[in-house]
Design a protein around this nucleic acid. Structure first.
Lengths: 229, 229
DNA sequence: CTTTTTTGGTATATTATTGGTCTACAAGCA
DNA sequence: TGCTTGTAGACCAATAATATACCAAAAAAG
């Protein structure tokens, strides 16, 4: 409304201005605001006024003031996180894998090359080796499933698997995986992986697809069980 | 708003800069970052600051620090790999649909609501109406298959279908579609769509899935036939 | 294989920056 | 007048960034 440059601005005005910067996304999550002295300069206002505004914003939960360090934005703008794939939940992902991976097994049988099968075998060995290291196992597991996709020689399918995997590697997940990946489960997964691999190398598409379904069913079960605890 | 040149950069700022490099794709999957000392030089900042930033990025799961070796990107940026979808060919897409859509039919039976089925029926009617307008038919067809995905209530699957569809709508495609979409084919598609829809409304998951496989087989055949001419 | 180089990990003293606090003063308003 | 609010400046304590040196593991060179 008013904006004659030489007007005195209240702390509430400043708070509004900075709040707008934040929700508009000019200042994004975890970003540090300019120091109070600098803000005072840019807004042409005394430092005390800035401080009052910032305290207000902190009470509103937009900002965290850390003495000696700075003032940081703690507010997730909706636009930033709404990337559709970002907030897929575990069960959605399992359904997507259920759709894709059995058929990927069939295609792997059809189009896979010996060298790629050798790769898969190495990955099986690595997973069996990492029985007591859930993190390393999970990584090898991801590569195994990606390796299956690579056997199809279908760039689109590989891309889709990669996208799904990128969901899999989100933060919330890592915690859940620690819950689910006990030694017993890993042993079982390894057995299933090996079976799937054998079926593919033996060029038995339907068998491989069915084994994959079993495998995914196992994974889904341990997921839901972990979710209940 | 901040950093008019002469502001001291905090580790948070550095973390933000490097994070941007990664998500923009300047630093891609499995790539090694410059050594810390070098980064300190290029960002004009002390090594400790770089280290703090990198530790942050590691906690965020963007990066893996390997002592004695280097720091590696472990994050696949969506934007960077988006090109993979640009140059997918028709047959790759058909295989992907073969993997996805039959299972989508099963899930549609499980989770679909009456209102969504009504939507599908309208789309069937619209397609039957557009027997002599290939462009309009193709559009309704796309919406029908997307509608099936919506019945699953699985945001991830819907997203994937949308991505695949965006491949479908490329230029080269439209030409091919004119070749393939004669009246006879459209009639046959309509019949199959109607069958699939009936099976879903009758809550017969396997039947619906099999009908979808037939449908896709038909589509693939007319594609390959068009490619030969 | 051994040696050298590179790389991240750690420690520390120093310096600079930043928010926190206090005081004195001026401007606007009831 | 008396109250509130913004201004200006000084100083403090907490924190972070710097600069430097040295270590251990990995990688590269010989």
């Amino acid at each position: 409304m008013n904006n004659h440059s030489e007007q005195r601005r209240s702390s509430a005005d400043i708070a509004t201005l900075i709040r707008q910067e934040i929700v508009k996304g000019n200042l994004s999550f975890h970003e540090r605001l300019s120091p109070e002295r600098k803000l005072a300069e840019t807004y042409n206002v005394a430092r005390g006024t800035i401080r009052e505004a910032l305290n207000r914003l902190e009470q509103d939960g937009l900002v965290k003031i850390q003495p000696g360090s700075g003032t940081y934005v703690i507010y997730q703008s909706h636009e930033a996180s709404a990337s559709a794939i970002e907030d897929a939940n575990p069960l959605e992902m399992m359904d997507a894998r259920f759709a894709l991976e059995p058929h990927i097994c069939r295609l792997a049988v059809l189009h896979g090359r010996r060298s790629e099968f050798d790769e898969l075998e190495k990955l099986c060995a690595r997973m069996e080796d990492k029985l007591h290291d859930p993190t390393a196992f999970a990584q090898a597991d991801t590569e195994f499933h990606r390796g299956l996709a690579k056997c199809t020689h279908n760039g689109l399918l590989i891309w889709i698997i990669d996208q799904i995997t990128s969901v899999r590697s989100q933060d919330e997940w890592r915690r859940m995986r620690h819950l689910t990946l006990e030694d017993g489960i890993i042993t079982r997964y390894n057995h299933q992986h090996r079976q799937i691999f054998d079926a593919i190398r033996a060029r038995e598409p339907e068998h491989a697809a069915n084994l994959m379904k079993e495998h995914l069913e196992t994974a889904r079960l341990s997921l839901t069980r972990a979710a209940e605890t």
